[in-house]
Simulated scan of single mutants.
Amino acid sequence: MRGAAPTDCSHSCLSDRLPSGPDPDRDWSRQAIELLLGDARRSADTHLIKPVFKGLPGISIYLKDESTHPTGSLKHRLARSLFLYGICNGRICPGTTLVEASSGSTAVSEAYFAHLLNLPFIAVMPRSTSDSKIAAIRQFGGTCHFVDHAAEVYAVAERLAAETGGHYLDQFTYAERATDWRGNNNIAQSIFDQMQAEADPVPEWLVMSAGTGGTSATIGRFIRYRNLTTRLCVVDVEGSAFYPAWKSGDMTVTTPGSRIEGIGRPRVEPSFIPGVIDHMIQVPDAASIAAARVLSERLFRRVGGSTGTNFFGLLLIAAQMLREGRTGALVSLICDSGDRYSGTYYDDAWLAGQGIDIAPWRERIEAFLDQGRDLCAA
């Protein structure tokens, strides 16, 4: 009969029956995402601190304090995003071994989330990584695999993921895409929401350093998406490839690597998006560490070396604004706590061994903050 339904259920298009009953992997994924979203609700809005410096009239400085996350750093946001990205792409399932290449802070945060989801975790990192970060990774049940040179972490992490049948989280590739840069309470939206009731709600500049490049990509894209006049300055450190690549336009640049943990890379990472950056500054390591120490004393608690880099870059912009008679707000980040670096940046013997003299920079910074004396004057 014309239009009659076929009765042969062995026909090839009907031979694969729909699955019936619950899917354990999907059930696990739903539970895992709920745990991650619960963490996000509890920890997304970190404090925006406003220290006052007598030497900077008309310039308001704000510091987004990412050290208060449960794992103590800005990388907590990135790690959560990478886990959500991996789960939603079907790459993280029950029992998946997770592997990451890291200089420490991202691995600490990822170890925390792996522990939360009861998944094995391996961090591939340089031997020079601070002892406190190594201890934190192990405390969360993670395993540390050490390499002699920072440039080796990528290949080793990829190999370990293949050998274990696991998933390489690969922060340096996926940082710029795992976070929703248009909003969804990312760090950029959080900053601008917190600035709304301030005297200058739209900052002149937002200043930050780059590790993966993912956070600068998120912030730079958000600024453009919201059509804001704020400009983004990325500060880089000695031995890093980001600044020379941005300046020359050659993204194949390689360098020795950074002494400031968590920022600066020996190569230009895939998540570094130069097109969203308005300006870059290269900061000497001695200036970064001096700035971290001075800021720590003013905040009554220690901040890390990358925060010192951020703060010094912000002060350079403030100095130019003062010279030009301009006022406004500047925003930067407190990336992590300086307690993780008691054996390095806060150890005078370590500084001497590295040939780093912070005294001249410290004097300049303090004179600028207290008296407005030109930061660039000899």
Rank of each mutant, 00 (worst) to 15 (best):
A319P: 11
N186F: 07
L116G: 01
L330R: 02
V268C: 06
D45Y: 15
H76N: 05
Q371T: 13
A136H: 03
A40R: 14
D131A: 12
F312R: 05
Y346W: 14
G165R: 03
G211F: 04
G21F: 02
A292F: 08
G257T: 05
A157H: 00
S128P: 04
C335P: 09
I365M: 10
L14C: 13
H145L: 14
R323Y: 11
S128M: 06
R224P: 00
A123I: 09
R138S: 12
G165S: 07
G325C: 05
R77G: 04
Q196L: 15
L36C: 10
Y174N: 10
P120Y: 04
W361F: 06
V234I: 06
A290C: 03
F300Q: 14
G55F: 02
N184V: 06
S103D: 05
S332N: 11
T307Q: 07
L74T: 10
L299I: 09
T143N: 12
N118L: 03
F242V: 02
P24Q: 09
E66D: 12
L74Q: 05
A150Y: 03
D370Q: 15
C144I: 05
E324Y: 07
P94V: 04
I334M: 13
T143A: 12
V331E: 00
S216Y: 08
S306P: 10
E198F: 04
V99S: 01
H11F: 14
R182F: 06
L116Y: 03
T97I: 01
D39F: 07
F192L: 00
G304R: 00
G183D: 03
F146D: 09
L18H: 12
G313C: 05
V124F: 08
F300C: 15
R224G: 09
S67A: 15
S12Y: 07
I92H: 00
Q320S: 11
V202Q: 04
T218P: 06
